[in-house]
Amino acid sequence: MTATAPMKTPMDLRTHYLGMHLRTPLVASAGPLSEDIGNIRKLEDAGISAVVLYSLFEEQITKERLDLNRHLNAGTNSYAEALSYFPEPSQYRVGPEEYLEHVRRAKEAVAIPVIASLNGSTDGGWVAHARDLQDAGADAIELNIYSIATDPDRTAADIEQSYVDVVHNVSDVVTIPIAVKLSPFFSSLANVALRMEAAGARGLVLFNRFYQPDIDLEELEVVPNLLLSTPQAMRLPLRWIAILRGQRGLSLAATSGVHWAHDVLKLLMVGADVTMLCSTLLKHGIDTVRTIEQGVVEWMEKHEYESVRQMQGSMSQRSCPNPTAFERAQYIKTLQSYRPSGR
């Protein structure tokens, strides 16, 4: 008689996000990889459970249109011999057609949900394009609506209200779910989350990372400088997801600093429905998705977890043994425990 090993049941990694059923909590966040349909296919093959497409920017729709009009008409009627400098086209595509086409092609190419991303901060005409994204086949929309507020006459309340208006207006024109990608820079993030939900958001993506400008010392110029995230960046979404998990019924996505399996596990434990990957895929390649999933499964097996749902929220502020730890900004014990090395 030969002994046979018991059939191993695949780990249950399923999760819900914005009402969608996903195979795993690993989602590709908005980034340059999704500009290429081939990469989206590779992401699906590697096991990603949904993909957020690169962002369609408000300025792409409005500024580009204005620029095109301005430059194509510059000098018109200035000289008797040259009343214009370009042929008059019969039809222009100055909206988000290219992006919409990309959404359509992505949907045709893969079976996983495709989430379109809209990036802007004013309640302008661009908001109406959310409907076009839905018609193009997007399964959900991620709204990225933060801008750097520099006008001293605008209060925080004014700015927050304008964001709420954007969410409200988008939710008015679409039936697919909307997630709002927020920055951590609000005086009362918990209140903002509440208002976003009331305006129609089904989920929050925490947090947005911004290009922080750098200085070119030789040219004396301010230059945009993209720094990929490091694993340390996940501490901020970790804290806020832990806090919000107990307060709201919204879907919560963790993004920023999600690099390896243990980052994913920690974020799931504090209450993330999904974890979004970007920098790690850019740094280490698309196949990292497999490594992370395998790492998550191995850890769960080793620690005898049955499913992702079992661990989701288990370490949130509401469920963890020391909830005040998530609220303390200055921790005497932590500060005093650090000792400089060396002399």
Binding site: L68, H71, F86, P89, Y92, V94, E98
Partner: peptide, 12 residues
């Protein structure tokens, strides 16, 4: 340059 860019808008 819009002399090239506009082609994408008119004849993608």
């Amino acid at each position: 340059e819009n002399r090239f860019k506009m082609l994408g808008k008119t004849h993608p």
